[in-house]
Design a binder for these strands. Structure first.
Lengths: 188, 188
DNA sequence: CGACATATTGAGATCCATCAACCAATGTGG
DNA sequence: CCACATTGGTTGATGGATCTCAATATGTCG
């Protein structure tokens, strides 16, 4: 599945000059400070954020607790998927966990660009397919693995997460309490 | 989110005659008997199955146990998403739970049709978006709800599932054991 | 230093799995 | 049409995984 990211990147590189240029022209670099919110709950996710550098996360509130649903690193695309797709209020927040630089494209502008540059429609499909497979894989893990297995999976496949994100956030990302995560780590 | 299904159906209805016709021409109705497998593990999911009538499910084997990942009813589109998208061997099976009639389109043929009828590309994107939101919602439930809450959610939003699918399958769909499901039902 | 966020550890409660026995409905071969 | 196997579901006992509440570090930053 990682190879699909390569396929997407190859596709972007192979785009004709006009299409590449169109993408450039509708992108805007922006900086956020640690703790800034790129998207708030109940706002419509009207922009996509491609992380140039830094770390961010997406989370929502459940019984007053923050549940992290996704962690973003360099080259990851941050959006609240259903809010962006339906252009309806978001259940989720997007927060900068460090200072970040992002490349921003507005939803409306991208929709327009897709009409004029059909290859962007294919790109949109590929990105959506990738997200679908990513979520499916995460659901698979929740469906079949214990918390310890899920933690070990992150530890082996995405050690950078453990190294750069507070355990409180990792715990909620794994769907367990901070205390349980601490005990899992102590046992290993 | 249900409204997005309507939007997709409206989009299909609004397609020009040529595109509609193209869709028709690449579709083929097929019948399967209860218990038949539409897709086997390790096969490549080279077709999409639109259920005309009957009930089907998607599942995989985990430690020799069948874990149901999706239930299909009339008008649902059955594919093993990652296998279909990447055209790689499937981890999942697709099984007819009753006699079913499906409208089959081959992956290759659909890819070709998308080139000649660009509106099918948009349709593909919409369907993929819908699946993404569906999986995201299911992950959300696993992330935050107890088994009882997940069962009640099905009971209220999709009672037809409870009425037409064996509890063994519903239990694995909910990610719990048959015994636990039986106890949840007894308590209500 | 003080304040606040982050992490660890302990004790008790709750949810859920597993193993096992049992029951009811259905279907099939003789 | 009966005997028996199979499938689907219930119930009980026990143990493990994880949660919650609470106390106690540890770290960080103004």
């Amino acid at each position: 599945m990682t190879s699909y990211i390569n396929k997407i990147n190859d596709y972007i590189k192979s785009l004709d000059y006009e299409t590449q240029n169109a993408l450039q022209n509708i992108s805007l670099n922006k900086h956020y400070k640690k703790g800034d919110l790129l998207l708030r709950q109940n706002e419509i996710c009207s922009k996509s954020y491609l992380l140039i550098n830094g770390i961010a996360r997406k989370y929502y509130l459940n019984d007053g607790k923050e549940i992290t649903t996704e962690l973003y690193f360099e080259n990851d695309l941050a959006i609240s998927f259903d809010s962006y797709t339906l252009q309806q209020p978001s259940k989720e927040f997007i927060e900068a966990l460090t200072d970040v630089t992002v490349s921003v494209i507005s939803y409306q502008t991208f929709q327009e660009a897709k009409k004029n540059f059909p290859k962007l429609l294919t790109l949109d499909l590929m990105l959506t397919e990738y997200y679908g497979m990513w979520v499916e894989n995460r659901l698979f893990q929740f469906h079949t693995m214990t918390a310890t297995q899920r933690y070990l999976d992150i530890l082996t496949k995405s050690p950078h997460i453990i190294q750069s994100v507070p355990l409180t956030i990792i715990a909620s990302y794994l769907g367990i309490s901070l205390e349980t995560l601490s005990r899992i780590r102590a046992k290993i």
